[in-house]
Design a protein around this nucleic acid. Sequence first.
DNA 1: CCATGCAGTTAACAACTGTTCTCTGTAATT
DNA 2: AATTACAGAGAACAGTTGTTAACTGCATGG
Lengths: 208, 208
Amino acid sequence: MSHTLGIRQVQKQKTRQALLDAALGLLEDQSLSSLGLREVTRAVGVAPTAFYRHFRSTADLGVALVEEALGSLHPMIGTTVSGSGDSEDRIVRAVGLIAGHVQAQPAHVRFIARERHGGVQPVREAIRDQLARFAEEVRDALAEQPESEGWTQEDLLMLAGLYVDHMLVTASQFLETLDAPAARREEVARLATRRMRLIVIGRRHWLA
Amino acid sequence: MSHTLGIRQVQKQKTRQALLDAALGLLEDQSLSSLGLREVTRAVGVAPTAFYRHFRSTADLGVALVEEALGSLHPMIGTTVSGSGDSEDRIVRAVGLIAGHVQAQPAHVRFIARERHGGVQPVREAIRDQLARFAEEVRDALAEQPESEGWTQEDLLMLAGLYVDHMLVTASQFLETLDAPAARREEVARLATRRMRLIVIGRRHWLA
DNA sequence: CCATGCAGTTAACAACTGTTCTCTGTAATT
DNA sequence: AATTACAGAGAACAGTTGTTAACTGCATGG
C-alpha cells in the first residue's frame, strides 16, 4: 500500500510543507484574507509562480491548513471523553490537554480561532465541518456513558456542541496568556475548570 | 452643554459616518486586516487623502467600529438579566433579543465575531475590553437576584462570562442562517434556548 | 537510453496600495 | 470685512500585488 514516492514527489511535498509553515507564521499577525501569495513564497525563498504548483489560491492553502490543524485532533477527542476516572478527573484532564495543545501548537490554534469567523468563505466552511464532526464524535462518546441514560440524541448533540465551543473559548484564552506569567495561565485553567464543572452539574440535573 | 455644532462639523461627521458605513459593508466578505483605505474612500466617493482627516489608519477605523457596534448595547444587557418573569421567561426573552439584534444589525454582529480574534491587535483589545465590561455588568445584575445567594463574586463573574460567550456563539449561529429558511433560524433558537437552560440548571445546583 | 512530465524560474503586465506635498474653497473667527 | 482654520481634492511617489507566458533542468516511465 505504501507506494514509496520518488525523489521528485518528496521534494514537492517538502516545498508544499514549507509554504504551509511560512503561511502559518505570517498569519500570526494578520488574517488569511490579507495574506498574499508573493508574501508566502518570499518567506520560503521560492519564485511566486511556484505557488501555483501546490495551491490555486491562498484560500485553497487556508483549507489545507484547516486540515493540518484539526484533522489530526480527532483521535484525541474520543479518548478524552471516554477516559477513566470520575467526571471531575475528566474535566481536569481535558483542561490540561487543551493547555498542552495550545503550548505545543499555538499557531494552529490561533489560525482556527481567527479564521472560524474570518473573511474567507471556503475556510470558514472547512472549519465548520471539522467542528461539526468533533461535536458528533463527542456525542457518540457521551452516549456510551451511563450518565447519558434517558437522553435523546438531539440533547446529547446539544451538550456536545457546548463542550466543543467551550473547548475553543478555553483554547483562545490560553492563547492570550502565552507570553504572560504562568500565574495567569493557571487562573485561566481554574476558570475553565469551573465553567466545565457548572456544565457537568447542569447535565446531571437535566432530566426532571 | 449641547454646543450646537456648525455646518462644518456636521458635514465632517457625515463624511466620517459614511466612511464607517462603507467600511462595514466592505467587511462583509473580508477581514479588517485586508481592508484598504483607498477601497473605503472609493466606496464613499471621496479622495483617498480625505481618509486621514478622520482616521489615522484602517485599524483606527476598526476601533471606532467596535465602539459603534458594542457601545450602545450596554443598557440592553442589564435590563435583560434583571427583567421580570421566571428564569425560563428570561431565557426565551434573551434568545429573542439576540435574534432580533442579529436581524437588525447583521453587519455589526459579523464584524465583532470576525475581529474578536482577527489580525488587528488594537481592535481585538477594544472588543475584549467591551466584552469584559459586559461580563461585569451581567455579574452585577446577577448579584441582585435571590438565586445568587451564597455565591462569590468570582463565581458570579465566571457565570457571567459563560453567558456572554454563549451570547456571541448564538449570535454568530443566527448570522449563518440570515439567508436560510426561517425554519433553520427557529431551530437555532431552540438549540440556544436549551443550552441556556442547561446552564441555568447548573447554576441552580452549583452550591453543594 | 531516450522521450516525456513537471517542479520551479525568469520576465513582464497592468492594476493596485499607503503616504507625501501642494492647493482650493469656504465656514468660522476676529 | 478681513483673516484664519481646515475638510477635501489633485497629482505624483515608490512599492506592492496576482497572473500569464515561455523557459530550464532533471527525475521518471517506456
